[in-house]
Design a protein around this nucleic acid. Structure first.
Lengths: 246, 246
DNA sequence: GGTGCTTATTTGTCAGGACATTCTGATGTC
DNA sequence: GACATCAGAATGTCCTGACAAATAAGCACC
C-alpha cells in the first residue's frame, strides 16, 4: 500500500515541520487519499523521503495518534483508523457548536452586573466570599427558537464584557480574543425537570426534561476563569463527546 | 523554589525511564510535596541530576502536561497547575465509576441473545443488515436502588459473554479481560422524559427526567466493538467529563 | 520616572544514531 | 499436519548535540 502521499515542506515558514507534516497527512485522510486501514510508510522511509529526521516524523505521527486519526502498533506499522472518528474533544462553547452546525445563533443578555460572590461560587473561582464578581445571565436562541438558559460567573478583573459583544459572539470567543488561554474544563452533565420560570423562558411545559451542565474552566495556570450553570431544552439539543484513550 | 524532589530510577526495570520519572513527579504532586504553582527545576538541570538526557525528561513532562497536571511556558518554566484537576477523561463504564465511588453496583441481565441486526445498528457496527449480533439488556442498581437501563449491541464473534459474568463485572471490564483494546468512544448525551415501562423499571414516575447516552466504542483498529443506548435516572446520576486542550 | 533595548533563562524544534521490543510470516521439526 | 523456532520489519526508548523563539528582568537613555 505505497500511496505516495505528497508532502510539501516550507522550511522558511514559522510553522513547525512536524506540524506541517501532520496537517498534510490529516488532510490526505480527510480527502480520502489515505483510506481507513491503509498503512503509512514506515517512519525511517518517510523521514528519508522528506529529508527530515525520524524524531520529527515521530512527533508528527504522535500528534495524529493523540487526535485519534492514526493507530500505531509496534512491529506492524502505522495505520489509518477504520471508522469515522468525529472531531476530537475540544473546548468549545454552545455558540461555536451552533455556528458549525449552520444554525445562526442569537443571544439575549438578561443580566450583566457585578455582584458579591456566594460562598460556593467564591470557592470555585478562588476569590474571597462576598468579593465582587461578574454575574451573567443569557438566553440563547437557535433558528429563532429558545434553546438554553445560561448562568455564568467570572472574576471581575478578567476581561471587559459588554452586552453588545456578548450578543454578537460567544463567551468563549470573547475570552479567547481577550487573550485568555483556556486549557482545562470540568463538566458535570445531568438532567432535571423544568421549573415554571424556566419553562416560560424556554417555551416548554412545566416539568419538561432539561439537560443541565455545570462547568468550570481553568486557564494556562490553572486559575478558574469561568464558572457556568446552564440548562438546555432536551428536545432541541444534546451534547457530543469523543473520548480517546492513550 | 528548589524542591529537592527525590526520584529513584531503576534502569534494570522494563518500565521506561520517562514513565518512572513521570509517575514519581505525579506522586509528589499528589502527596503535596510539589504544591500548585510551584516551578519545577528546568529540564536541563533535571536531566543532569537524574543522569538522563533532556528528551527523556521532556517526554516525562509532556506526559504529565497531557494529563493536565503540569503547565509549560516557554521562557518561564514548568509549573504545577493551580486548582484541583479531577482525573482525566477515561474510557470507563458506569460499573467502574460506581465502584470507585464506593457504591457496590449490582446488575440484572434482562436479555442476552443473538438477534438480527436492525439497519441502523448494523451500519454502526459495520456488519450486514440482518446479520446476527448480540443484543444485551441490563438493569443496573446502586446501593439497592435501580439506576439505569442499558441496551447494548455487540458483534457476535467478539467475545463469549455470560449472564453470570455480566452480573459480577461491568461490560467494559469483561471486554478488556478478553483482550479487546478499546481506544475511542463517541458519546451523545441528552435527556428525555421516562416512558411508562421505563418508569416502572426504574421506580420513577412517568415523565420523570432521564439522562440518555448513546455510545459507540471502537478498538485499536477503529472497528466498532460495542454500541450502547442507556438511560439513567437523572435524580440519582450525572456524568462528569474533563476536557484538556493541548 | 517612564520607555525602549539588551540579555539571560527556559522551553520548542530538529538532527542523527544506537539498541530493545514486539509482531508477522516463513521455515523447519516432530 | 500441527507446533515450535527463527529472521525480518517496524515501532519504542534513549542518547548527544545544536539552534530558535518567547519571556522576564535588568539597564541605559530620554
Amino acid at each position: 500500500m505505497s500511496t505516495k502521499l505528497e508532502i510539501d515542506l516550507d522550511r522558511s515558514s514559522p510553522v513547525p515541520l512536524y506540524f506541517q507534516v501532520a496537517e498534510q497527512i490529516a488532510e490526505a485522510i480527510r480527502r480520502g487519499d489515505l483510506t481507513p486501514g491503509s498503512r503509512l510508510d514506515n517512519e525511517i522511509l518517510l523521514a528519508d523521503r522528506l529529508g527530515l529526521s525520524r524524531p520529527t516524523i515521530r512527533q508528527a505521527i504522535q500528534y495524529l495518534v493523540d487526535k485519534g486519526l492514526l493507530v500505531r502498533k509496534r512491529g506492524v506499522g502505522t495505520q489509518v483508523v477504520h471508522g469515522q472518528v468525529k472531531r476530537s474533544v475540544e473546548l468549545t462553547s454552545l455558540y461555536d457548536d451552533l455556528r458549525r452546525a449552520g444554525q445562526e445563533p442569537a443571544t439575549r443578555v438578561l443580566t450583566l452586573e457585578p455582584a458579591p460572590a456566594e460562598e460556593d461560587v467564591a470557592q470555585i473561582l478562588g476569590v474571597a466570599p462576598g468579593a465582587e464578581i461578574l454575574r451573567l445571565e443569557r438566553l440563547r436562541y437557535a433558528s429563532g427558537e429558545p434553546l438554553a438558559i445560561m448562568h455564568n460567573w467570572l472574576p471581575l478583573a478578567l476581561v471587559p464584557l459588554t452586552a453588545e459583544g456578548l450578543e454578537e459572539r460567544g463567551l468563549y470567543e470573547v475570552l479567547r480574543a481577550a487573550g485568555v488561554r483556556m486549557r482545562v474544563a470540568n463538566q458535570r452533565i445531568g438532567a432535571r425537570a423544568a421549573t415554571v420560570p424556566e419553562a416560560k423562558l424556554l417555551a416548554e411545559r412545566r416539568g419538561a426534561p432539561l439537560l443541565t451542565m455545570v462547568r468550570t474552566t481553568y486557564d494556562d495556570q490553572g486559575r478558574a476563569v469561568e464558572h457556568g450553570s446552564h440548562v438546555y431544552r432536551a428536545s432541541h439539543y444534546s451534547l457530543e463527546v469523543t473520548l480517546i484513550e492513550r
